[in-house]
């Protein structure tokens, strides 16, 4: 290769791993946060569904008891 071009492009290949690592780390951080946020949302939704059904069945039981009385 032309020595001038060699000098011009001298930092391209050595810097590539750092550029790739920078973008990969940023995307990894973002993905970790998204996974954390979504898993917490799913867990909370599941908890809410269970609790709402428990509350509903309790209220039904209470209504039955009042009717019987």
């Amino acid at each position: 290769m032309n020595p001038i071009l060699e000098q011009i492009y001298a930092t391209i290949i050595p810097s590539a791993p750092y550029v790739i690592a920078a973008y990969a780390l940023m995307w990894a951080a973002l993905c970790v946060f998204v996974v954390f946020a979504l898993s917490r949302l799913k867990r909370t939704e599941a908890q809410l569904a269970v609790l709402e059904s428990t509350l509903a069945s309790r209220q039904d039981d209470l209504t039955d008891q009042i009717r019987k009385q």
């Binding site: 020595p3 001038i4 011009i8 930092t11 391209i12």
Partner: peptide, 23 residues
Amino acid sequence: SVDGVEMIGGQMVSNQLLFSQKI
């Protein structure tokens, strides 16, 4: 700066091109 000038893509280039700046 480099020790000369080269024509790249229709432009005279006399410096190293910094790929790391893409960050």
